[in-house]
Design a protein around this nucleic acid. Sequence first.
DNA 1: GTGAAAGCGCTAACAC
DNA 2: GTGTTAGCGCTTTCAC
Lengths: 339, 339
Amino acid sequence: MKNTQVTIRDLALKLGFSISTVSRALRNASNVDPEKKKHVLELAEKLHYQPNRVAQNLRIKKTNTLGVVVPQINLHFFSSVISGIQEYAAMHNYGVMICQSLESLMIEQANIQMLVSNRVDGLLISLSSETNSFGHLQTLLDKRIPVVLFDRITDSVHANKVIVDDRDGASKATEYLVRTGCKTIAYIGGPEHLYISNQRLKGYTDALQRNAIPVDGDFIFHCHNLKSDVIAATDRLLSRNKRPDAILCLNDPVAVQVMQILKHKNIRIPDDISIIGFTNEPVSQFIEPSLTTVSQPADEIGRVAAALFLEQMEGKDDFEPVTKTLSTELLIRNSTRSI
Amino acid sequence: MKNTQVTIRDLALKLGFSISTVSRALRNASNVDPEKKKHVLELAEKLHYQPNRVAQNLRIKKTNTLGVVVPQINLHFFSSVISGIQEYAAMHNYGVMICQSLESLMIEQANIQMLVSNRVDGLLISLSSETNSFGHLQTLLDKRIPVVLFDRITDSVHANKVIVDDRDGASKATEYLVRTGCKTIAYIGGPEHLYISNQRLKGYTDALQRNAIPVDGDFIFHCHNLKSDVIAATDRLLSRNKRPDAILCLNDPVAVQVMQILKHKNIRIPDDISIIGFTNEPVSQFIEPSLTTVSQPADEIGRVAAALFLEQMEGKDDFEPVTKTLSTELLIRNSTRSI
DNA sequence: GTGAAAGCGCTAACAC
DNA sequence: GTGTTAGCGCTTTCAC
C-alpha cells in the first residue's frame, strides 16, 4: 500500500496543534476546546483522514474483530450463520474475518493460528468433520481467548456453545414417521465423532423406543464421506430383503442424494419410502417432491454466537461458559406421507 | 483480550539474546547463528509464541488482508465467489475480511471505510443494487488502494474488474428461445443503473434484432425491488391480450418467483411460457420443472478477482486496470421447449 | 553475527 | 485545556 494515507500527525502539523489534542478531538474526548475540535474534524473530513486501526489496535490491545471458522462458506447453512454473525457484529462495531477449513483439521488449525496472530478478539468456530482432537482449541482457552463453538461442537472443550436441539428435532421427525405408519425407519448419519450426528441418532432411537420399535443397527449408517458413503449406504439399504419404509437423513444434501437414487430406481417417495432431511436448505422446498425437513434457525445461531462472545468480552473475569440450545421445527412437506 | 500472549521480548529475555536476534531467527534471516536460531524456534514452539501481526502490520505497513464487500453473504452466488476468493487468498498467505452491504449504499460506504481503517491491502467489491454514485470508490483509487470490482460493477470507475459475459449469455439464451419457436419474449430485469441488468438487456435485444423480431418496450421491465416489482411485472405481462410465450429473467431467484406465479395460475411451463434464469443457483436444478439457466463460474470469479489484486499488488507503479470477462454457459433444462 | 536505537500511528498517563 | 512523553510489538537500519 502506498504511503498516501493521512495520519494524525499530518493533521497536527497542518493545524499547529499537538498530536494529543488532535487525538482527543478525533475521539470526542471531554477536555478539548470546542473551537479546536471543530477545526480538527473539518480538516480530517477534508483530507479523508481514516484512523489507522492497526496502530489503534496495537496500542489498545484490542482489534474489534471476530474470527470465524466454518467448514465451507458456500453451504447455505453456514453462509446464513455467517450472515447472522456479520450483522450482529457490525451493529456492535465489530468486523469479521472469515476462514473455511474445507473439512480439514490441518487447515482448521492453520486458520485459527492465523486469526490468533491477527489478534482477533474472539473466535466463533464450527468444527470440520475431520476434527477429532482438540488441542488447538484448548490452547485458545489457555490463552484466555474467547471461543464460541456453534453447530459442529464437541463436549471435550469448556467453551461457550450454540447448538440447536438436534436430539429433539430428530425425535420429532422420527415420531412423525411412526405416526404416518412407517415401521422400518433407517438413519443415514455422519461420522461417529460428529456431535450433531450423534445427537440426531439419539433423537431417532428415543422416538423408536418410545414407540416400542426395536433399534436395529443394520438400519443405521455412519458416513465419513458424505458423497460416496451415502450412495453406498443407500444401495445397501435397497438391496436387502427387508427394505426400510422411511429414511431419516443427516441433512438436506444427504436427503437430496438419497432421493435422487430412489427416483432413479423408480421407488416412489413417499409411497414406498418416506424421506426426512435436516436444516431446511433452499433446495428442500424446490425439489420434487418437496422435502420434509427439520429446520434450524441459522441466522439466529450466528446472532446468538456473536452475542455470547460479546457477553464474555464485556463480562467479569470469573467467566463460566454456557451452552445455548435453540429449538428446531419440523416442516412437513411432501416427501412424507400424511397421518 | 488478556495480556497472556507471549512476545518476542519474552523470548529474548528468557534466552539472554537481544530482541533483534530473536526477530531474525524467527524470520529465518540470513545472518544468525544456526545454534541460536534453533534455540529460539524451540522456545517459541514450547511457549506457543504467535507473532503479533498487528504490530508487524503497523511496522511493515501491510496487513496481508483483503477486504470483501458483497450485497449479501448468504446468496449462493456470492458465497461461492467468497469461497473462491478465500481459497486463493489463503494459498497466497492472505486473510479475508468480509462485509455485506445488504443492498444499501450507506452500509456499503461504511463497510469500505471500516476496511480501509483496518488497512486492508486491497478491496474486492460487488456493488449494492442501490449504488448509483461512486465517490466512495474514487476516494479509494485516489488513495491508490487496489480495488477489484466484480459482477456488480460500474463503468464510472477506473479499476480492475471481473465480470462474466452477461451480454453474450443473455444473447445465447434469447437465441435459444427463438429457435424453440418462441415469438414474444419478455425480459424482467433489475434497476436501470445495474450494469449486469443492462448487459443482459443488450444481449436480449441483440438476439431479437438478429432474428428480425421487433423489440417491444412493453415486454421489458426494470424492477427496483426484486420481490414486489417482479410480482407486479409478471401480473402485468399475464393480464395483457397478447401474452408472452417466454420470459428471460434477471436471475434464478427472479425466475423462481415468476414460475411460482405461473404455476399458481395453472399456466404450463414450458408449453405455454418458457422461462430462463441466470446464475445456476442450486435451486434451479431442483425446482419443477428444472430451470434452464445461464451459468456463471462463481468460484472462478472469486479466484480471478483475487489474482488480479495480487498482480496489482506485486506489479509496477504504472498500473493499468484490466477487465476480465469470463464466459457463461447455457444450461438447457426443462423450463424451455426443445428445438 | 549481534545489539542498540529509531520508529510505524496511535493512546493515555503525567505534568503544567 | 494542552503538550510532552512513554510505549504497544515488531522490523530494520546502523554501528561494532
